[in-house]
Structure formats: structure tokens, C-alpha cells
Design a protein around this nucleic acid. Structure first.
Lengths: 348, 348
DNA sequence: ATGAAAGCGCTAACAG
DNA sequence: CTGTTAGCGCTTTCAT
């Protein structure tokens, strides 16, 4: 098929015109063959195919994009690939996009709204057909820009006001996690949030937690803000050493962490201070990333149906892009499931 | 700056012509201002800037790419984002690319050479300026295509014959890992390889292992091929239950795994069968992914300098793209470092 | 210092 | 069924 002679000829990629000349037809005919347009005789189709093969012709997507004024590229804004939850979502999004003929272009924001802005700017400059937010800082200029350019947007596993959203029921998740802890006899239960998690989800999970607490007649909610692996944390607005919250007479005996990443680092901190999990401290996470299932981690957690989130997200976005969905932005909530492992136990 | 009126006007993005009309100059002048070309009077520059601002003009990268016949996009071929090593490398590569003005376009191959082929095809169709392989199946058609299209290629943390490579010294890594085990008194040491790791690196690590064994006058190398979390494995070409290799009279007492991912799943298997690590089995990994440092995992491993790999990789590729490097493909090897943790111990 | 004109490679009417 | 034509939005000589 490919001879060295051809390889040499192709130092400059063949264009549609080269193919037309080679096959002795016009550009349009080649274009029709390439795009599988109807109304081309079998004979010409065959000879064009031959010319394409001989020249190793590959359509220039850029030229096509320019004339159609649309790309088949989806921009994906990811929080931080180092968090396995995002890594897996990114992979699933890419796969679903590919299965529908779209290519994914990622930008990693590292949770920083400045790079989010730059990233979205770059996506917009590349005229992506749509944008998937896997994390969203809430910075309004970002969206403003997207809107101005009429790019459909979807928030997957996070939320924003200006586009469709597909996510889990965070309130419900927080509730289920907290109820599990309450059922195990815990009275002093804290909510642990980390900056990596997008604010709205954080607030919703906090709400579910607070609701469950209230329903059980337990004390006021206790919110810990922590950036692993720091020693310090902020407890109800006041800086404290995190370990102190977990020890002492009025210590917290259970923590609902806003995601597995935080939960695992909390467990790590407990290990370093020789606090037993779940003996001295019960922990529930959120996400159910792969490593939470390892015997050595064995984290009780609220599982997000990642596959379903990715599928619905891409489905919705593509429908929007292709004009099959014109209704106002909609929110689709999918269910969560508590996965019980070894990081939680009855209060002694 | 942005009034609603403008937002409305921008439903169709402004083109360079709109700006020219608005500023009362020609397309070329606008182009000169946008590109910061010299030879534009301060006055016109100012008025053009104003028009750009008013219209919210953003240059169409696609049109630019078409005329310059080059993009500023780097294709990145990733093995599997679910392996934290790849996730982190992907992130670093993206960051370094961005710092040099390039955008990254990922494709996840899942170790499957069919999707590698499709992915590279898509990258090529998008006329990426260069391709970074973070994993490479060795399938020659892939590269053949890349070569035919004259796209510079770099292999980072893996290797291939048809491009520059920046990787660690795998032989040395295998040697260091094995010597550590030998020094701890182990006699029956196996090498564990998983399909996710690219073949050449696998072979090089195996070689380092075998060399160390030979130098110490220890028996023949023992190679285990395993797909976690299966029960079965292939030991020196013959299928066996993995756990049997780790128990019984002539059991293996130490394993050098070809990457941390495999090492951690081996540890998991040991845990499930109540084999103590390092009591009954010592394990050394390769990569030093973040989770290997957790107290509960505490994996002894050969660390790859990821930051340096990413930096050198992008530097080299960009030099190639920009024509600053025209020498024949070169190989850059960077050093590895053994990180001792709790998964290895002296043989009792 | 600025403008006019010729494409980049492709698609999409519209003729023939 | 196939060819002609006119752009898509931008860069780049070459004039002025």
C-alpha cells in the first residue's frame, strides 16, 4: 500500500486538489467521495478512492472547520487530574465524546480561577463546539465569555447557573453519609471541606449533613475547612490544629469528608497521630474513587455513578450543540449510593 | 467594558473585517495590531484596540492555522489516565506546553493499539504541531503515519525508535530496585510485569533486574505477567495462580513490580490472602506515585523525576517543532532514585 | 504607515 | 452525475 516513494511525495501533505488532479476529476467530486455524499458513480468513487490511497490523502480538518464555522472539538475543564475522581471522569468524558465523533481538548485549572479563565479563553479561541465543566470556580467572567460566544456549556458533577447540569444529588449524598454515622451512634460529627471541591457542591453536601444532624436532634453543624496535608485547619471560622479537633474531651468522633481525596488524607493524618480508624474516628468520603476500595484504605463512601454522569453529560451537550435540545437549561440529578467499608464503626 | 448591547451584537463572533470597519482601517492594519507587528502608528493602534474592545473581537485561531499551515496544538497520547502516574504526567505536560504557548489535545489509548491508531489519526487530522507519547504500543503503523506527515514526535517516560526520547534509565532502575532486595537477603526474587506498561520499558526494567540477579550469583530470573486484579498470572510462560507463587516451599519472597500500580495491586492481593508485607513478601514498585507515600501503602519504589521528564520532553519537542533542533533523534536519560518505605524488609 | 490582493484547503450552492 | 464558483477569517507580499 505505502511505498517509500509515496512517503517521499508526502513531505507536504496532499490536498484535495492533488487528489482531484490525480484522479482526473474536480475538487467537489473528491469532496463528495470523502464525505460519503450521495450521487457519485461507482466508477468515479473507485478511482478517487485509488487516488486518495496513492497519495495518502487525509482531509484537513482545519479547512473544514473554517468553512463550516464549527469544530468537532469539546473543551473539557478539569479541576485537577491528580485527584483520581477527575482523572477518571476525564477519561470517561473523552471516551463518550469520541464515540459521538468529538475530540476532547482538556484544560487543567488546578482549582485556580485565573487559569480557568485562561483555559476557557484558549478553548474559545479554538472555537470548541461546546464546553464540559468538570469543575467550576463560579467566576462569572468565564461564563460570560462563553455565553458571548454562544458556546453550549454543561456542568458535569458540579454546577453552575448558566448551562445544563448533570450531577448527583449532593444534598441527598450528604444526608445519607451523615445518617450512616448517626445510626452508628455518633453524636459529634463534623463536615470536612477542601478547597479543591467546587463551592456549590460543597455547600449542598454541607446542607445534607446539617439537615441530617438537625433531623436527629444533634447539636449544631461543625464545619472544618482544610487543605491537606496541612496541620492547621479552620473550624467554624477559627484556625485550629486539626488533630486537636479529633482528640480531647469534646472531640469529634466522626467526620463526613466532602470527597474521598480529603477523606484519605484525613485517614493519613489520623494514622500519623496513631488515632485508630474507625476505633477513634469514623470517616465517610464522597466519590468512591478506585483506591478507596483497596483493603488498606477501605473507605466508607458515597459513590457517584461516574459512567452515567459522563454519558448523560455528553448526551446533553451534544444534543445542545446539534440543536436537538433548545429548551432552557435543565438540571439532571442522578442517585448516589452509600458504600460501606471499614472506615466507619459503631461508637464504642 | 462589556455592555449588554455588545453581548447581543456578538451572537455571531466579530471578524477581523468587522474590526477594520469599526476602526475605519484595513484588515491588514488590524492584523498588524493584533500580532504586535511593528510599523503601526500609535494613533491607529489605539483606535484599533478600541474597536477590538468594543466588539469583543477574538482572533479566529482556525483561520490563522489554515493560512500558516501550522497549529499550536500538541497531541498527547496517554496510556490510561486512571493510572496516577499518567494522570500526573498528563497534567505536567499540559502545564509545560501551555507555558510555551501550546495547547494540549489528549487521547487516552487504554493501552489498546487500535485506539492508539485512531487517536493518532485524529491528532494528525487536526494537524497538531507535534506528538507526545506518554505510552506507546510499538505498533508501527501509528508512527509510520506520523512520519509521513512530518510531525515531530517525542517519547516521554517510554521509548520508540522514530523520535526523540526522554525517559529514565529503566535498566538502572530495575537494577537499583533488585539490588535493594538482594541486600535485604532475598534469594527468590520475581519480576512482575503488567500489560499497561509499554513493552520496551518493561523489557529494560526486566533486564536491570536480571543483571542484578546475575551479578549476585542468584538463580535464573523469574518473570510474572499479571493483569490485576486477576487471580491467574503467567509465570515464565506457564499459567499459574499468582498466590501460589507467593506461598509454599519454593516461594518467592520478594517482587520487583514494573510500576507502582501493579505493586499496589499485588500488595492488595497479599492483604486479601493474609500474606504479610513485608513479613512474608517484600515489594518494590516503580514510579513513586503520590499514593505510594501514604502511610497505609508505604511502598518502597523507584522514583521517576516527573517534573524533569515533562520539562525536558516539551523543551525538546518544541525545539524540534520550531526548527531549532535538526539533529537526528536523540535519547535523554534522567536518573532514578530509590525511595525506601515499609514494603520491603530483611528476609527473616 | 497603510491598503489591496492573493491565497491557505475545504464545503456548498448552483449550473451544466 | 460532475464541474464551477464563491467564500470561511486570517496572514502576507507588494504597492502606494
Amino acid at each position: 500500500m505505502h511505498t517509500d516513494e509515496n512517503v517521499l511525495r508526502l513531505r507536504k501533505p496532499a490536498t484535495i486538489l492533488d487528489v482531484a488532479l490525480e484522479a482526473g476529476v474536480s475538487k467537489s467530486t473528491v469532496s463528495n467521495v470523502v464525505r460519503g455524499a450521495p450521487g457519485v458513480s461507482e466508477a468515479t468513487r473507485h478511482s478517487v478512492r485509488g487516488a486518495i490511497e496513492r497519495l495518502g490523502y487525509r482531509p484537513n480538518v482545519i479547512a473544514r472547520q473554517l468553512v463550516k464555522r464549527r469544530t468537532q472539538i469539546l473543551g473539557v475543564v478539569v479541576g485537577d487530574l491528580v485527584n483520581p475522581f477527575f482523572a477518571e471522569m476525564a477519561k470517561l468524558i473523552e471516551r463518550h465524546a469520541a464515540s459521538r465523533g468529538y475530540t476532547a481538548m482538556f484544560c487543567n485549572t488546578e482549582g485556580d480561577s485565573q487559569s480557568e479563565l485562561e483555559g476557557v479563553g484558549s478553548l474559545l479561541a479554538h472555537r470548541v463546539a461546546g464546553i464540559v465543566f468538570l469543575a467550576f470556580s463560579g467566576e462569572s467572567r468565564t461564563m460570560r465569555e462563553a455565553l458571548e460566544h454562544q458556546v453550549p456549556v454543561i456542568f458535569v458533577a458540579c454546577s453552575g447557573e448558566w448551562g445544563d447540569v448533570v450531577s448527583v444529588d449532593d444534598v441527598q449524598g450528604g444526608k445519607v453519609a451523615t445518617e450512616h454515622l448517626i445510626a452508628a451512634g455518633h453524636k459529634r460529627i463534623a463536615y470536612l471541606s477542601v478547597p479543591e471541591l467546587e463551592e456549590r457542591s460543597d455547600l449542598m453536601r454541607l446542607k445534607g449533613y446539617a439537615d441530617a444532624l438537625r433531623a436527629a436532634g444533634l447539636g449544631p453543624p461543625l464545619r472544618i475547612s482544610w487543605s491537606p496535608p496541612a496541620d492547621q485547619a479552620v473550624v467554624d471560622g477559627e484556625p485550629r490544629k486539626l488533630v486537636e479537633v479529633l482528640t480531647g474531651p469534646d472531640r469529634v468522633t466522626a467526620v463526613f469528608a466532602s470527597n474521598d481525596f480529603a477523606a484519605i488524607y484525613l485517614q493519613e493524618l489520623a494514622d500519623r497521630y496513631h488515632l485508630g480508624v474507625p476505633g477513634d474516628l469514623s470517616i465517610v468520603g464522597f466519590d468512591d474513587i478506585a483506591m478507596s476500595g483497596l483493603a488498606r484504605i477501605a473507605l466508607t463512601t458515597v459513590a457517584q455513578p461516574r459512567e452515567e454522569l459522563a454519558r448523560l453529560g455528553i448526551e446533553t451537550l451534544v444534543a445542545r450543540i446539534e440543536g436537538k435540545l433548545t429548551a432552557p437549561p435543565q438540571t439532571t440529578l442522578v442517585g448516589v449510593e452509600l458504600v460501606k467499608r471499614m472506615s466507619t464503626a459503631h461508637l464504642a
